[in-house]
């Protein structure tokens, strides 16, 4: 469908996709994307349905905290969907820790919604596991491996050596539209003539 729409922007003779081959996105990149969207969804839910969430968990009065977590969750999501997804996923792992700590405070014996809190904890723990796998995965996939880089010491680009190259293109005339501020020489050359003219 998207391809149908984007093909409208193309002319008749432009190539159109027949079938797709291997992608630059790896499995962990797709996982990062999914977790990013999960963050966005959860963040919106925490923002718009804070009351329902606190009621379900027996945490009435903590609505402001849930909304703050919603904003935080949106931040994780935006980062996980950006090119800096490593940062996004590790921030999610840290956020999971915060979520778990917060839910633990609701695991009190006198909380009638204790079962719900247990379910929520199980879900968060499961997602935390995915976050850790994802964060480690994207870090491994996108980091520069340690160790010595290749040596480019001989890549001068000048077949006759750097010394011969210095100023070798002095024959080149800078076109008038690309001249810059006048050089010292140009100004001092011109000054005496102008003095003559003013007499």
């Amino acid at each position: 469908m998207t391809y149908y729409i984007s093909n409208i922007a193309r002319s008749k003779g432009d190539p159109k996709v027949i079938h797709s081959g291997p992608s630059s996105l790896g499995t962990v990149d797709r996982l990062a994307k999914a977790l990013g969207w999960y963050s966005i969804g959860l963040g919106i839910a925490e923002l718009v349905a804070a009351e329902r969430i606190t009621r379900a968990l027996g945490m009435e009065g903590k609505e402001a905290l849930v909304r703050a977590y919603g904003v935080r969750e949106l931040g994780h999501g935006i980062m996980s969907l950006s090119p800096d997804k490593q940062l996004g996923l590790w921030s999610r792992v840290a956020g999971d820790g915060l979520d778990i700590a917060t839910l633990m405070t609701a695991m009190r014996h006198d909380n009638p919604k204790r079962d719900n809190v247990g379910i929520a904890l199980a879900v968060v723990l499961g997602v935390t596991l995915l976050d850790i796998i994802g964060a480690q995965g994207v870090t491994a996939r996108h980091s520069r491996p340690r160790g010595r880089p290749r040596s480019y010491r001989n890549r001068t680009g000048f077949p006759q050596g750097v010394q011969a190259a210095r100023g070798a293109a002095k024959d080149f005339q800078v076109p008038p539209d690309m001249r810059a501020a006048p050089s010292l020489a140009a100004v001092s050359d011109r000054a005496p003539q102008e003095r003559v003219r003013s007499h």
Partner: peptide
């Protein structure tokens, strides 16, 4: 090499270009 979205470039089979 075809752009499919953010960080998603694929080596696809596409129709040949034509003189227009």
């Amino acid at each position: 090499l075809v752009w499919h979205g953010k960080e998603d470039i694929r080596c696809d089979t596409v129709t040949d270009p034509e003189i227009e």
